[in-house]
Amino acid sequence: MAYRLKVNGERRTVDAEGDTPLLWALRDELDLKGSKFGCGMAQCGACTVHLDGQAVRSCSIPIEAVKDAPITTIEGVGASAIGRTVQAAWIAADVAQCGYCQAGQIMSASALLASNPSPSDAEIDAAMAGNLCRCGAYLRIRAAIKLAASKLGGAK
């Protein structure tokens, strides 16, 4: 059946079964390939998007559960000042190696900074603990979040 999803500020129609994970609706039905498949069970965070402003694992949310909640993906996160600043910080800190997990990392980081403009090291670690990076870019991820926080005026 058809579901009307609010994705990156636009109404989009997805014709798929209600149990289709949001991740696969985004990737294969809406051709938004930025959210990544990593585990399919909310273990790795590569599929992280914002649902109503919260960072969630889109691989484990069926589209029938989304209803009217606005969805922001990596393709749309740059529309907000926080998202744009986090993306810029990721470039400035030269975070990516293979880059596969980085969309999910950026989505988690921007959700963190939206709720906590000046996170401590422990708060950064806690907020990012659900996002795996197989290349081990964690130290630069921390640095990029701190850089973004300082650009946004919230750094300690």
Binding site: L32, K33, G34, E75, D94, A96, Q97, G99
Partner: peptide, 16 residues
């Protein structure tokens, strides 16, 4: 990394 800008925007760079 020469691909930083594309990576942070989630461009479809990967095999998958």
């Amino acid at each position: 990394n020469v691909d930083n800008a594309a990576i942070v925007k989630g461009e479809p760079l990967f095999g998958i």
